[in-house]
Computed example of a mutant assay.
Amino acid sequence: MLKITIIAGARPNFMKIAPIIKAIEKAKTENKDIDFRLVHTGQHYDKKMSGSFFEQLGIPEPDANLEAGGGSQAEQTANIMVRFEKELMENPADVVLVVGDVTSTMACSITAKKLNVQVVHVEAGIRSGDLSMPEEINRMVTDAITDQFFTTSELANENLRKAGILEDRIHFVGNTMIDTLLSNMDNLIDPKIKVDGKPLENQDYFVLTLHRPANVDEEGKLQEMMQAIMDGTGDHPIIFPVHPRTAKILTGLGISHKHLHYVEPLSYLEFNYIVKNSKAVITDSGGITEETTVMGVPCLTLRDNTERPETITLGTNELVGTKPENLKPYLEKVLSGTWKKGGEIPLWDGKTADRIVQDLLKIYSN
């Protein structure tokens, strides 16, 4: 019996592991010798991660919650490692499977390796080249000690080859985030957002998300960026899902406009509903660039680098940068309807998790 401990620490992780869990459960019905234990590190507390969240994505309630959230990066890493070591010693596994690039990914990988347990990294090999991002450190450390690498793109494969990883440990399987998105396209939920008392009109509004320190920590820069967004989007509403506390700070800075609408954070199914029906998305998130590419929605990324270049070369994403003055020509393309169409990305087909489970059974069948 192949025993896999699956790690999730933050909301995006659960979207990445949901299809893997379904694929394992499917393999079990086919009498394959495989089972899993789901461990939530508790890295992020998210009130929207209720039973309904797990139910919507078809994820069972975690077998364990380490409740290791809070504190500085170092404190959080240490808490996760201490608690996960105890968990893994009490519930031994053949493989620890980690996804993405959050603190939990790195911390649980280190803990597993020190207990001589195999580590599998899903979404391995992606790099931004920006060491000021905590996520980049997490990626590099995790991939330095991973045993088997499951990748989303040929570029990720190349990054791993350059790091000296042998070909037989690299498995190009696709993107489990896209598995989740495609399996939920018919289940998206209209959050019934109203602007001036009227429902949003399809493809008549922009969606905005901002969270990276480079964009939000400097008040003056944030004001300039928001002004550039409001100036460049014309009369179109801008829907900005944001925590009420952050909205209060933004309003306190005088960042308000008749077309700018703060809404509370949305669930996965609600958020992707408004993305799918928007004119374009303005964001500094990495994951959203993948989803917009698959949905064919223009995406303007307010960053100077990206770990997902395939969303630019093959998809609907463009790297705008972090200077407010860069925005105008990109927004003009959106408003004039001349934004690039984008195309399909290899293996982003909704079958990634099946490939992962098949490969795991082959690798660890001895």
Results as ranks from 00 to 15, higher is better:
86 K>D: 13
87 E>I: 01
87 E>F: 02
87 E>H: 08
88 L>C: 00
88 L>M: 03
89 M>I: 09
89 M>N: 15
89 M>T: 14
89 M>Y: 11
90 E>T: 14
90 E>Q: 14
90 E>H: 05
91 N>S: 14
92 P>F: 10
92 P>S: 07
92 P>K: 07
93 A>I: 05
93 A>Y: 03
93 A>R: 06
94 D>V: 02
94 D>S: 05
94 D>G: 08
95 V>I: 14
95 V>T: 05
95 V>A: 04
95 V>P: 01
95 V>K: 01
95 V>R: 01
96 V>L: 13
96 V>Y: 08
96 V>W: 00
97 L>M: 11
97 L>I: 11
97 L>A: 11
98 V>Q: 00
98 V>R: 00
98 V>L: 07
98 V>A: 06
99 V>Q: 07
100 G>W: 02
100 G>M: 08
100 G>A: 14
101 D>Y: 01
101 D>A: 15
101 D>T: 14
101 D>I: 09
101 D>F: 03
101 D>R: 01
102 V>L: 12
102 V>Y: 01
102 V>C: 08
102 V>H: 05
103 T>N: 15
103 T>P: 04
103 T>S: 10
103 T>V: 02
103 T>Q: 09
103 T>W: 07
103 T>K: 05
103 T>L: 09
103 T>I: 15
104 S>I: 00
104 S>P: 06
104 S>K: 08
104 S>F: 11
104 S>L: 04
105 T>P: 10
105 T>I: 13
105 T>R: 09
105 T>F: 08
106 M>I: 11
106 M>N: 10
106 M>S: 10
107 A>I: 13
107 A>F: 09
107 A>S: 15
107 A>Y: 09
107 A>D: 08
108 C>E: 02
108 C>N: 13
108 C>P: 03
108 C>I: 12
108 C>K: 03
108 C>L: 12
109 S>G: 14
109 S>F: 07
110 I>Y: 13
110 I>T: 09
110 I>C: 10
110 I>E: 08
111 T>Y: 09
111 T>V: 15
111 T>L: 07
111 T>H: 01
111 T>R: 11
111 T>S: 15
111 T>W: 00
112 A>E: 02
112 A>F: 02
112 A>M: 08
113 K>G: 01
113 K>M: 00
113 K>S: 06
113 K>Q: 02
114 K>C: 03
114 K>E: 05
115 L>K: 13
115 L>A: 03
115 L>M: 09
115 L>V: 10
115 L>R: 05
115 L>Q: 15
116 N>F: 14
116 N>V: 08
116 N>M: 13
116 N>A: 13
116 N>P: 04
116 N>K: 14
117 V>P: 00
117 V>A: 00
117 V>D: 05
117 V>L: 05
118 Q>H: 12
118 Q>L: 12
118 Q>P: 02
118 Q>T: 15
118 Q>S: 10
119 V>I: 15
119 V>Q: 06
119 V>R: 04
119 V>P: 06
120 V>K: 01
120 V>Y: 04
120 V>L: 08
